[in-house]
């Protein structure tokens, strides 16, 4: 029965990739307006921080301040792109454009649709963090070739924020509620995950909160890999990312499934 039904519709990987392909098609349709900003943003940042702030702060946690931030920014870039993709965009596809309804009238399941979504957000995380690494490496703030490992962590970060954002989306009935998510959750994460300054010297309460932020672990892995400073805590951070992704992904799958098929 099982082998029989496997021939009756496309295999798992083809289904996931077909959802990915839809998003890829939409994204590459406006290549310039979608593909250029990821490279422009780190440039603007370099001008702003490089010419401005780094005159006052030269060093952070033993490395130059620009290198410190340059190794954190690929992850915030991956975080924001995945979060936008799987909150506002997902909500629009779910409620307004009925893109998922279309997919569910073809041989795709709810899991296929959601996994394709997560895979696409991971891909965007990879691409966006790669753009930042490339710009920063050009100016010598990220060492190569170790810096080229950062986009892979960017992929994991994209996946992790995709599942988190999908889980948040599953609770949202009005698109404006995402403002709370971005202001209340992602902005604090941007400031307290060791991107702008190290979290090690924060007051205890904030320190624990910062350790619980998933972005902290992504940034830690990126920085340690980039400067090739491998420590056992890397494995702990990786485990945290995996568990966080599985947990939020499970919530998203449970709850969004009920919104798509009822």
């Amino acid at each position: 029965m099982r082998s029989n039904s496997q021939q009756l519709y496309p295999p798992f990987l083809v289904r996931i990739l077909s959802v990915w392909y839809r998003h890829y098609k939409v994204y590459t349709k406006s290549l310039i307006s979608n593909g250029l900003p990821p490279f422009l943003e780190p440039l603007i940042f370099l001008v702003g921080i490089g010419l401005g702030m780094s005159r006052y702060i030269h060093e952070m946690a033993g490395i130059s301040y620009l290198s410190f931030m340059a190794t954190g920014l690929p992850m915030t870039s991956a975080m924001y792109t995945a979060a936008f993709e799987c909150s506002y965009s997902t909500f629009i596809r779910l409620e307004f454009d009925k893109v998922y309804d279309g997919m569910l009238s073809s041989p795709l399941s709810v899991s296929d649709v959601l996994l394709g979504e997560v895979l696409w957000a991971g891909t965007k995380g990879l691409f966006f963090s790669f753009a930042v690494v490339l710009v920063m490496a050009c100016f010598g703030f990220i060492p190569l070739p170790a810096g080229l490992l950062a986009p892979f962590v960017g992929f994991l970060t994209g996946v992790m924020f995709a599942t988190l954002s999908l889980a948040i989306t599953s609770f949202v009935s009005n698109i404006n509620h995402f403002n709370f998510y971005f202001t209340g959750i992602l902005s604090p994460m941007f400031f307290f995950s060791g991107v702008i300054f190290p979290i090690e010297n924060l007051p205890a309460v904030l320190r624990y909160a910062a350790e619980a932020f998933p972005l902290t672990h992504a940034v830690r892995i990126t920085r340690d890999l980039t400067f090739w400073d491998l420590k056992p805590t890397l494995l702990y951070s990786l485990l945290y990312i995996v568990l966080f992704t599985l947990f939020t992904g499970w919530i998203a799958w449970k709850r969004l499934g009920k919104r798509m098929i009822y």
């Binding site: 939409v26 309804d101 279309g102 009238s105």
Partner: peptide
């Protein structure tokens, strides 16, 4: 389906 669900981005 009853409701048109073409992909308006394509």
């Amino acid at each position: 389906p009853q409701e048109n669900n073409l992909d308006e981005e394509l």
